[in-house]
Design a binder for these strands. Structure first.
Length: 127
DNA sequence: CCCATGACCACAA
DNA sequence: ATTGTGGCCATGG
């Protein structure tokens, strides 16, 4: 029963965050709050930021640069290897950034609630 | 166990 | 428009 279909173990909040972040298409961004809302915890935006902080050294590269704050500002850029790296990654995907602000923010914003179906976030029982 | 700290956000007033 | 505040979740002392 549990042998062939190994359910994705998204037991804890951080793992759910990581899963959503990996669904962001290149060239688009989303926000901490949008991820929190999608996961059903409206006010958990801070926790989303903390989750990204925890995986800042994760390999292979994790598209954390596609997460900005609710105004489109690159508030997390100082957690990359240098203060310009986040902007460089975005610009390499065709997103224009000026003065820490994502340009055409409403156009490139990708809201998981509008683009992801509600999936079953289930786990196999061992934590 | 309680308290403080975060890559945050919505809502007062 | 600009502040202040409470809430959210995981972690560490």
């Amino acid at each position: 029963m549990s042998s062939t279909l190994k359910p994705c173990r998204l037991a804890n909040f951080f793992e759910k965050v990581y899963w959503v972040v990996q669904q962001i298409p290149p060239g688009r961004v989303t926000t901490y709050g949008a991820i929190a809302r999608y996961l059903g915890s409206r006010g958990a935006a801070r926790a989303v930021g903390y989750a990204l902080y925890q995986c800042r050294d994760k390999v292979p590269a994790f598209p954390a640069h596609r997460v900005v704050n609710s105004q489109g500002l690159l508030t997390g850029k100082f957690h990359f290897k240098d203060g310009l790296f986040m902007q460089s990654l975005l610009e390499a995907e065709g997103i224009q950034v000026c003065d820490n602000q994502v340009q055409n923010f409403d156009k490139v914003l990708w809201d998981p609630r509008e683009n992801l179906l509600t999936i079953a976030l289930y786990y196999d029982g061992e934590r």
